[in-house]
Structure formats: structure tokens, C-alpha cells
Amino acid sequence: MTLQSRRWMLMSEFRICIVAAGARGRAHARAWSQIPDAQLVAVADVEEERAHALANEYGMRAYADFREMLEREDCNVVSVCTPASLHCAPTVLAAQKGCHVLCEKPIALTIEDGEAMIEATRKANVKLGFFFQRRFGYASQKLDKLLAENAVGRPVLWRIFSEAEIRPKLAMHDKHGNNGPIGDYCPHLFDRWRWLLKTEALRVAARGFVYARGKPEVASIRELAIDTAAIIIEFASGDIGAIVITWGLPRGLGWRNSEAILGPNGIIDVDGEAKLTISRPEGQETFTVEDKLDMDLALVQDFIDAIRTNRTPKATGEDALAALKMSLATLQAIETGNWVSLA
């Protein structure tokens, strides 16, 4: 721990800077604002009006350049909420200045950037955490116990259907922004499988399309990401993960999800993070939670505790890098038409 880090810890205060003031920047600010020992000090966004709006809402200073913000502000935690292609630079600079970094997923669009982020924080001896907030949801916590108890047997076939209209943020459809659902959303699912199945992916097969091509909402994007895919992942445990996903449906169709875990002894149906039902020959059992957990807040609280107790955050850089490798293997499988090995 650096001398600067020791001084911050003695102050018992976490001073937060946020990079990017979009929807996820707002979510981070809202979560940080609920931490008693945290103070939101500044936000940077290339869209200055957006930075000022968020700054005014939470009493922060606003910047157009994250470099200037990190140079001027005495912060010790940085939330990185830019599009995935821009995660590396602010993470590395924050680490070099002795700041812990809590970053949105995915870690990056390339393995090189992801490894650079991990190495920079390791070298600076600061924490690096990632926003895989579903790890903290009620259903995920319950699934962790049920799978540990072998509730439906193994191996399982875990299938997910996720069907959505064209997303409101264009960066989500940009191959060089967040790289479509395979780059932006599937890392949540891949991390969920790795964490709950306690295993690593062996190989991936996939087919994909660009359903949004030709639609006026994305006409300004130079190179569209694949927005529709069928994905099969084999795990070292013998389990199989299967995803059918699209972000390319016409506007007005909304977003719907369906998730189930099939095992030799039964089925677990998952309804978001608030409800799941296990069906076995002896009958059905449903688990629900009335008060929906704030998963963003729970993740931020875990990150703060990791700093205070000098432990590893529950969602690490290595976890995020593993999910990125699964995303890249999926895209390679679509491009080549072949199985792609991850072993």
C-alpha cells in the first residue's frame, strides 16, 4: 500500500471520482451516495452538459477530461463507466495515481487491454473490481446453494433466451464501442456460469447475424456489431450453457428473458433475481423475495469491504478477463463456423 493510500485509509473516507456520466455513471453515483464513508467529489465526461448535470445532482465538480480530473482531484477510488473500448486508459491512469478502480463490465474489447488493466492495478497494489452485480441477486445466491446441494443433479444444461429490440444506446450496437450483446451483455451470463457452476469453459460454438442492419435507428454506426446469436459452451465440469440472444428486433417489442437449468433430476426455472422455481418428481418449490435487493449497492459495499479488509473483491479482473475470452471465442466461432477452444 502506498503512503498516499495509508493516509486515505486513516481518514476513514472514500473519495470517489466517476469517469463517464451516462446511465451506468448515474447508477454508480447513486450507489456510492448511499455509502456513509464515501464522498462523491468529481465526474468527467466528454459531453460536458451531461457531466455538469450529474455533478449538480450529487454536489460534485465536473470535467470534460478524466485526465484533468485525476490530476486535480484528491480521490482514492475511481468508477470507470465508459463504453468498454475506453476502459483501459482511465483504469491504468487511476491505478498509477494510487486509486482503487471499480469498472463496468466487460473489462475491455481486447485481451491486451484487459491484461494491461490487471497489471497496472497489481503493480500499484490497488483493488480492481468489476460490476458483475448479478452475483449479489437473491436468485443467484439461492442458485449457488441449490447447485452446491446438487438439487437437480449434474451435468446441467443451462439455457437462456434473451430477446430485445434495438437498444437505446448506440454504443451497444457499435462493433468498436460495446460490441453488441456478445461483448456487452453476454459477459454477465458467462460470469454467472463460471461462478455458479464452479468451472471453466472448454470450447464454444456459435452462429450469429446482424438483425439491426438497414434499420434507421443505427444508420449512423459505421460498423455494426453482431446483435443476434445462438451460442453453446461446453465446460470442464461436463455442464453445457446455451444462449439464444438478440438485440436487433424492431422497436416496440421490448425485452423478454427466459432462463432454466435442466438436470437429470429436475428443472430450475429462474425469473429474474426475485424468483425461482425448482421442479422435481416429488413436486414444485418456489423461492421468492419480497424486498428486491439493490445489487449495485451490494456490489459497491463488497468493494469497499475488500479495500478495508485488504481482500479480493468478489468480482475480480481475472473474472472479467475470463468472461471477455469467452466473448471473443464466441465471435471467433461465428466468424469461422468452427468450435473454438478455450482450454
Rank of each mutant, 00 (worst) to 15 (best):
N179W: 00
Q4N: 13
D294H: 03
P155H: 10
A164W: 02
P83A: 07
D291V: 12
A94R: 02
A21T: 04
R222S: 09
L157K: 13
I226V: 13
D184I: 02
A53M: 12
G254E: 15
H176G: 00
R135A: 02
A23F: 12
T199V: 12
D227W: 01
W158G: 01
L299K: 03
D191N: 09
W8P: 00
K97R: 12
R134K: 14
A148K: 13
G25I: 02
V46D: 05
P155C: 12
I118S: 03
G114V: 09
A31Y: 02
S5D: 11
D45T: 06
R280A: 11
E57F: 08
R251V: 08
V92P: 06
M69Q: 10
P168K: 12
K145A: 14
S79R: 05
S12H: 10
T336G: 06
A94M: 06
T91S: 11
T91R: 05
G241W: 06
A139M: 04
I231R: 05
V210E: 01
L189Q: 06
Y58V: 09
Q34L: 13
F14G: 01
T330G: 05
P181N: 07
G263N: 05
A21C: 07
V80I: 13
L109C: 09
P168I: 07
K145Q: 14
A206P: 05
A148S: 15
K105F: 04
F190P: 00
S279L: 14
L276R: 03
E234P: 06
A323I: 02
A274F: 14
L197V: 11
P155T: 11
V41S: 08
A298T: 02
A212S: 11
M295D: 10
S140D: 15
S5N: 15
L276K: 04
V289S: 14
E335A: 11
V101T: 03
F130Q: 01
L93Q: 09
R192I: 05
A55W: 03
E149P: 03
I35R: 08
E223Q: 00
A260R: 12
Y211C: 12
I233G: 03
S5H: 06
S5W: 01
D74S: 15
G25N: 10
V300K: 01
F130N: 00
P106I: 01
S140R: 07
I304W: 00
T286R: 07
D296M: 14
Q34P: 06
E217C: 07
V340N: 02
R159T: 11
M11G: 13
D65S: 14
R167F: 10
G248N: 06
V77E: 00
F190N: 01
M1T: 13
D294A: 05
I232N: 15
D294N: 12
I226M: 04
D37A: 09
R135H: 15
A108L: 06
M69E: 07
P36A: 13
E57A: 11
A120G: 09
L102Q: 03
R207V: 13
G25E: 10
A148M: 09
K142D: 09
W339L: 09
E73D: 11
M69H: 07
L70E: 06
A38L: 09
D319E: 08
P250C: 14
D65T: 09
A164Y: 02
S279D: 12
G337V: 05
D191S: 14
V126K: 00
V43G: 02
L293H: 07
R30S: 08
R7M: 11
E57D: 10
V218M: 03
